[in-house]
């Protein structure tokens, strides 16, 4: 199953990166979200997949008995999901504001604020 998920992750990365490279700002938000999913699944797959054995101790046990899913990537992903949401919200707000200020959704035309030299 890791093999199949590897292809899913690859597909999500490709789609996310492609959208991030668009000039239309709305697509960038969507691309960011897809990249977030891709990264989370990447971590998840790297921790190996286990069916039906969550890393939770059964009542009466004093330690986790094999087989069980790797809890470390799960803990990492859990915070990553929430932070990903925060970033997505921030990017959304940023893009909304810049759209309002510059009256365009074409990234290439949004250069008034960081003109070089």
């Amino acid at each position: 199953m890791e093999v199949v998920l590897a292809f899913v992750v690859g597909g999500l990365y490709a789609a996310g990166l492609y959208l991030m490279m668009r000039r239309s700002i709305v697509k960038i938000i969507l691309g960011l979200a897809l990249l977030g999913h891709a990264a989370n699944l990447l971590l998840f797959t790297m921790g190996r997949l286990t069916r039906g054995h969550p890393p939770v101790l059964h009542e009466g046990d004093t330690q986790l008995l094999h087989p069980f899913a790797d809890p470390i990537p799960e803990a990492l992903i859990l915070t990553a999901i929430v932070i990903g949401f925060g970033i997505q919200a921030f990017a959304t707000a940023l893009i909304r504001r810049s759209h309002e200020m510059m009256q365009t959704d074409d990234l290439d035309k949004m250069r008034a604020s960081d003109s070089s030299d």
Partner: peptide, 16 residues
């Protein structure tokens, strides 16, 4: 924190 963060964002976006 999670409730505060999501609602701050949500309210700000919804009011805007």
């Amino acid at each position: 924190v999670v409730v505060g963060v999501t609602l701050t964002i949500l309210f700000a976006l919804a009011e805007d």
